[in-house]
Structure formats: structure tokens, C-alpha cells
């Protein structure tokens, strides 16, 4: 990333396009990522949204968007983007609108739709080489319904549907690799607590055509059970512990944007969140913690080997 307008964090836009007054929770990590993304995308953007927390961004007659927005349904947002993109192309081809009237089509969904219900529609857009950007805000559970586990919930996390002593028995789906294997033009992970990286990735995605994806981990005070003021702290720890690798897939290659000679132990990330408290209280579950740490180590070992 050499030709970026964002060399340092102070290059980020000074004014914000997304209006305040939305019903997202105080300290919402997803909302923070979206306001950064929107500032880079600009107002000539249409967000096509699926059911999730962010559906409530626009509740009649209130909208935070200066551009456009279309709510569809939980499994349908990428297909909604297909109709809008195709229609805009047709209108320009037939001279019914000016090229200057064109919009960037951006799908916005949570992990429930992105990792689950909408994945068939998502895959379809890659098959058809649809020119759009898809932003997933991944808060690792069905947050808007009270944080039940989803395909994005990490191993051992307590959710409303995994309240047992162990927590969630499943493992987080590797959506990044699925999208890359499907042939996406661009796939990246990002997080709002690393705004410069996020802005650079939005900027890069905007410059590429074809199906593009940015999966942003969205620390969620409500669903992960931590004080809202800790949202960015926890986000930074997700990166520093190696839980959330910041990476990109372009031209058939995966590259990591942030690597560390030494990762912080994963416990520093886990112990700050109520959803993992059962791994520390009443007594420490050493074996589970070791498994989690090992899986992170294994991932980064493979990265280093490649």
C-alpha cells in the first residue's frame, strides 16, 4: 500500500459523514468501523443491508446516511446489491442517468448473515463477478437478538445459547479463506480499533473492481460483556494477541499487514470479556486456554513458514 491517502492516522477524514443519533449500543465497535468506512467511501454510496444490529441504523423517519440505503432481508443483501448494480449499469448504458450519478454499491451485514444465512447469495455474487464491496461487521454472534452463537462465534465463548460450563463447542468459520477460495477480487480483515489499516483497506477496495470483502471484527460490549469504554482496548488486544490477524487477499496471495515478533498471550484478551469469564472463574480452565493459545500459535507459525 504505497499510493494511499492515509499514511498516518491524522490523514483520516476530519469530518464524519455518518450522522449521530443511531440506536446502536454505546461503545459499538461495529458502528465505529462503519463511520470510518463511510468517511472513506463518501456519500455516493448505497448501503444494501441485511437483518442484523445495523438494520436499526435507519428507523423511519431517521437515517444517519447522507447517501442511500436499502434494507432487504437476512439472506438477501448481496442479491439486493446485484439488482442495484445491474440497474445502475443499465441506466448508464441506456443514457438514462449520467456516469456522475453512479453509486458505489456496498453490502453491510453482520456475521449472522455474512457467515451464515446469506452465504449462498454471497457466493453467487462472486460467481457472477459482481462489482461491489461487502462489509461484514462481525460481532461473533446473533447480536441483535441477544447474542446467540453463530458460525462466527469463537470456541469456548459463552453466548445465550451456549451457557453451559464449557461455552460454545464449535469453532469460528474461516470466512476469509472461503471467500478467497471462491475467487473474490479482494478480501481483507480489519477492525475499528486500527482505523488507519481499516481506512487503507476501504480505500484499496474502492480502487478495485469485482466482488470485494472486508470482514471487520466488531467488539460488542453488550454481547461480549465488557464495559463500553473498553471497546477499542479489546479490539487492539484482539490484534496484539493474534486472535484477529489483519490480512489481505489479492491476486491469489494472502499477505499479513501487521505481524509481531512476539504476540501477547491470548489470556490478556479473553480475561477482559464476560463471555470468557468461565475460563478463569471459579478456577482457571488451563486445558481450554492452552488449546486456544495453541491454535493461535499454529496459525502464526504457518504464516511465518509461508
Amino acid at each position: 500500500m504505497t499510493e494511499t491517502a492515509f499514511q498516518r492516522q491524522k490523514d483520516l477524514p476530519k469530518s464524519h459523514l455518518l450522522s449521530a443519533g443511531t440506536p446502536m449500543c454505546a461503545g459499538c465497535g461495529g458502528l465505529e468501523a462503519i463511520h470510518i468506512a463511510y468517511d472513506v467511501l463518501g456519500e455516493n454510496t448505497i448501503f444494501v443491508n441485511a437483518a442484523g444490529c445495523m438494520t436499526l441504523l435507519s428507523v423511519y423517519p431517521f437515517t444517519p446516511f447522507r447517501g442511500s440505503w436499502l434494507y432487504t432481508a437476512m439472506g438477501a443483501a448481496p442479491a439486493g446489491a446485484q439488482g442495484v448494480r445491474d440497474a445502475l449499469d443499465i441506466l448508464m448504458d441506456k443514457g438514462r442517468i449520467e456516469v456522475a450519478d453512479d453509486l458505489d454499491v456496498v453490502v453491510l451485514t453482520g456475521d449472522g448473515s455474512g457467515y451464515g444465512m446469506g452465504i449462498s447469495a454471497t457466493s453467487g455474487t462472486i460467481d457472477r463477478c459482481l462489482d461491489y464491496l461487502y462489509i461484514v461487521y462481525d460481532n461473533e454472534g446473533y447480536g441483535n437478538t441477544g447474542q446467540q452463537y453463530s458460525a462466527a462465534t469463537p470456541h469456548a465463548a459463552r453466548t445465550a445459547t451456549s451457557r453451559c460450563a464449557y461455552g460454545h463447542k464449535g469453532f469460528k468459520k474461516d470466512l476469509f479463506s472461503i471467500l478467497a477460495a471462491n475467487g473474490a477480487a479482494y478480501v481483507a480483515t480489519a477492525i475499528g480499533s486500527e482505523p488507519l489499516d481499516l481506512a487503507q483497506k476501504i480505500e484499496k477496495a474502492k480502487s478495485i473492481s469485482g466482488p470485494r470483502f472486508i470482514i471487520t471484527l466488531a467488539p460488542c460490549p453488550t454481547g461480549w460483556d465488557f464495559d463500553p469504554k473498553e471497546t477499542m482496548t479489546i479490539g487492539k488486544l484482539a490484534v496484539r494477541t493474534g486472535v484477529w490477524p489483519l490480512k489481505e487477499f489479492t491476486d491469489g496471495k494472502v499477505s499479513h499487514n501487521k505481524t509481531f515478533s512476539k504476540l501477547l498471550p491470548v489470556e490478556t484478551y479473553l480475561e477482559q470479556q464476560g463471555r470468557f469469564r468461565h475460563l478463569f472463574e471459579p478456577q482457571k480452565k488451563e486445558a481450554v486456554l492452552r488449546d486456544i493459545q495453541n491454535s493461535i500459535n499454529r496459525y502464526w507459525h504457518e504464516v511465518a513458514t509461508i
Binding site: 456519500e43 435507519s58 446516511f65 436499502l70 440497474a87 450519478d101 453512479d102 453509486l103
Partner: peptide, 8 residues
Amino acid sequence: FKAGAPLS
């Protein structure tokens, strides 16, 4: 939907 005509 088009530029300059905000619509949610």
C-alpha cells in the same frame, strides 16, 4: 437510487 439524491 443515484448520487445526489439521498434515499434510505
